[in-house]
């Protein structure tokens, strides 16, 4: 109900087709600001196997048209990596896929959340075929000027344990499940 059907016309990948697009579905299981425990560390519930079409779709959504970003065949010959150039913020799709709708970090899906800013470090681009695991540490929660901030540190590693990227992710959240519910039922 929450995500309009018109988005279906823009689906470009099997992952987008299969992903749960109803943002509020299962919201009762989302971790909340009130429940999050600083210091808790765990792997996110899903892994992300990187595919060309994931990368190309993110690149296109950012306005990229250069064939180095959107044409795998061309990029295979001309790009420095032999793969599509990867937008530096592509990690967003990896995180949202891996975290899913329950468990540690699922507050990233909170209705009513506001985004104050983010910090992403990139060691090297994700490679096509790599299986990415996201490890999450709940870093900090505090109240400032009446706003409830929650921060988690995400580490993205491939199947060989190589650290590809990190994301220090902060959001301003509704504090309690009842507060979240007010947005769900708005």
């Amino acid at each position: 109900m929450q995500t309009p059907d018109r988005l279906n016309r823009y689906i470009e990948t099997q992952r987008q087709k299969d992903f749960e697009r109803q943002f509020h579905l299962g919201w009762e299981q989302y971790e909340t600001w009130e429940e999050a425990t600083v210091g808790e560390r765990a792997d996110a519930s899903h892994t992300f196997t990187v595919a060309d079409d994931d990368v190309a779709s993110y690149n296109r959504a950012c306005g990229e048209t250069d064939p180095l970003y959107v044409d795998p065949e061309y990029a295979g010959v001309h790009s420095p990596t032999g793969e599509l150039l990867q937008h530096p913020i592509f990690v967003t799709a990896v995180a949202f896929y891996c975290i899913g709708s329950s468990g540690i970090g699922s507050w990233i899906r909170t209705p009513g959340a506001r985004n104050p800013g983010q910090q992403i470090e990139i060691n090297e681009p994700f490679g096509v075929g790599e299986v990415i695991t996201t490890t999450i540490t709940t870093r900090q929660k505090f109240v400032q000027r009446g706003k409830h901030y929650l921060t988690m540190f995400m580490e993205f590693r491939n199947q060989d344990g190589v650290l590809k990227a990190t994301w220090d992710c902060s959001l301003i959240l509704p504090a309690t499940r009842a507060d979240v519910g007010r947005f769900v039922h708005a």
């Binding site: 823009y10 470009e12 509020h24 993110y58 296109r60 799709a93 949202f96």
Partner: peptide, 11 residues
Amino acid sequence: RYALASLDMNP
């Protein structure tokens, strides 16, 4: 399009 590409479907 960005919502789909990023998998962030927040309404």
